[in-house]
């Protein structure tokens, strides 16, 4: 059963030159003062799914979350959460969602426990029940000892946990997390992953944005890869990896322009495609690293010297590069 659906979702922002976002492109000639953040996005998320939205900075991830959480008004198309339209039934949508922001935004006038208890009362949970749930959540998230702490005294990871506890306190149907692990150290990031896996096992629907491949691969049942506001691919992580052209990426850096080497490289057995960027030659291989010696010979025959070789196993990253021509993690 679908719990989230978007159809032909569009968002245009007015773009004064200073605020123009990197990666967003001006809308096609009609109004140069606008940038298109979403350009007809169709997504369907099933109940109980952990759904990842993957894309580089400026791809439209945060805008998508913003629209689904009623904080950004769509310029066109339609989006529903739990059957309610995000623009006309925003209050009903908000009752059913919990949101973990990109940057923690606790109520700094309240301590940790109060942050949760008052949040609960905003959702009609009684003080007593809010208090009980808050302590249980703090305990589960390993910050029970911080209940009386000021929010300013929390570390980045602890503040992020508080945000998760807050998003869960009113027991929402869907939890949205916008780049939840940006700025966390590796240990805090792994703890957060375990936590999210636990929530997923509990049967909650989780929608998260990320630009970390590993995170998406480990946590999500399905992934939508978006760039420049459009959906490039949507499948399970395994399904997406299977779609990567060739299987392995071989990157060669030459001592001069790589066009000639690329033409020769295309004839090497096992190479299905080559891309050139300046001195860089990228070859898609369906025989792993086997064609590397032949590629080096091809480069040398074109009068170039190979300065560096890098081999990437088939991954979401290689798929992403083949779809967009650029790397995900900036």
């Amino acid at each position: 059963m679908a719990i989230i659906e978007t159809r032909a979702l569009r968002k245009r922002y007015p773009a004064p030159p200073m605020r123009r976002r990197p990666g967003a492109r001006p809308s096609g000639g009609t109004a140069p003062s606008e940038v298109v953040a979403l350009d007809g996005l169709d997504l369907t998320v099933g109940a109980g799914e952990c759904f990842g939205i993957l894309g580089p900075n400026g791809a439209g991830k945060t805008t998508t979350i913003g629209i689904l959480t009623t904080r950004v008004r769509a310029s066109g198309g339609r989006a529903t959460v739990a059957g309610f339209d995000v623009s006309t039934q925003d209050v009903e949508v908000r009752r059913r969602i919990g949101v973990v922001p990109q940057r923690p935004n606790p109520d700094r006038s309240l301590n940790v426990l109060e942050n949760l208890v008052f949040h609960g009362t905003y959702f009609g949970v009684s003080r007593h029940e809010s208090d009980r749930r808050a302590m249980a959540l703090l305990d589960r998230l390993g910050i029970a000892d911080k209940a009386d702490a000021k929010t300013d005294d929390l570390s980045g990871g602890q503040a992020q946990r508080l945000m998760i506890a807050r998003a869960l306190l009113h027991e929402p149907d869907v939890i949205f997390l916008d780049e939840p692990t940006v700025g966390l150290d590796p240990q805090a990031r792994h703890q957060l992953w375990e936590l999210l896996q636990g929530l997923h096992r509990d049967g909650r629907t989780i929608v998260m944005t990320t630009h970390y491949m590993e995170e998406a691969d480990r946590l999500c049942d399905r992934l939508a890869i978006i760039d420049r506001g459009t959906l490039l691919a949507c499948d399970t992580p395994a399904g997406l990896k299977a779609k990567a052209p060739g299987a392995t990426l071989i990157d060669l850096t030459l001592d001069g322009p790589a066009e000639d080497a690329a033409t020769r490289g295309r004839t090497v057995a096992g190479i299905v495609r080559t891309d050139v960027t300046g001195n860089d030659l990228r070859a898609y291989s369906d025989r792993g690293g086997e064609p590397i010696p032949a590629l080096i010979r091809a480069a040398e025959e074109s009068g170039r010297v190979v300065q560096n070789i890098n081999l990437q196993k088939p991954s979401l990253e290689t798929l992403f590069i083949s779809l967009t021509g650029r790397k995900l993690e900036a």
Binding site: P101, N105, Y122, F123, G124
Partner: peptide, 14 residues
């Protein structure tokens, strides 16, 4: 601080 977002996400007309 963006503190106001907790209220803007509460089930109440903005």
């Amino acid at each position: 601080s963006k503190e106001i977002e907790d209220r803007l996400l509460a089930p109440i007309p903005t």
